[in-house]
């Protein structure tokens, strides 16, 4: 199924990259301001859904390059991997770890298991929703 609407197709091409960038922005700022893995994942999913409505499920799969289920699995793995540092250092499971790397200028790059976990949530939400939508759309085609 491919939409025949020129407006939708053109708009989708313009909006989808913006939406994806916005979703990553929401994910990364989530710890300090509204946003986070759930919201970021939902925004990214709606970007791909928009694309799928414009260009069909097949092209969306080509755009994703990997199957939505692999994204879901990767998300779960990320979330699980964020527990490893606590495990290695013998602390209770899921204890957060933080690393700070100085960047040029005054700022620091804050990395943490929490961020890895949030990325996992993002990917899991994205993968789940894309699995729903893509498999349903494939049936209709």
């Amino acid at each position: 199924m491919r939409s025949s609407s020129l407006i939708l197709n053109t708009a989708a091409l313009a909006i989808v990259p913006l939406q994806l960038m916005f979703s990553v922005f929401l994910l990364l700022r989530g710890h300090d301001e509204p946003g986070g893995g759930f919201i970021g994942g939902l925004v990214a999913a709606s970007a791909f859904v928009l694309y799928a409505f414009a260009f069909g499920a097949r092209s969306t799969l080509r755009l994703l390059r990997v199957s939505p289920r692999d994204i879901l699995a990767a998300g779960l793995l990320f979330a699980l991997a964020s527990t490893i540092p606590a495990l290695l250092s013998g602390q209770p499971l899921l204890t957060a770890h933080w690393w700070q790397f100085p960047l040029p200028g005054e700022s620091y790059l804050k990395l943490s298991t929490v961020l890895i976990f949030d990325i996992g949530v993002y990917l899991a939400v994205l993968g789940t929703l894309m699995t729903f939508v893509i498999s349903l759309m494939e049936v209709r085609e």
């Binding site: 989530g30 300090d32 946003g35 986070g36 759930f38 289920r69 779960l76 996992g120 939400v125």
Partner: peptide, 29 residues
């Protein structure tokens, strides 16, 4: 180290709940 308390609860304080939740998502998918 987070300013958005809701998000901090989700991914840090109550991380195990969230971990369980995304596995439920995976199951549903």
């Amino acid at each position: 180290f987070g300013k958005n308390i809701v998000n901090v609860i989700l991914v840090d304080f109550r991380q195990l709940d969230t971990l369980g939740e995304i596995f439920v998502l995976g199951l549903a998918a």
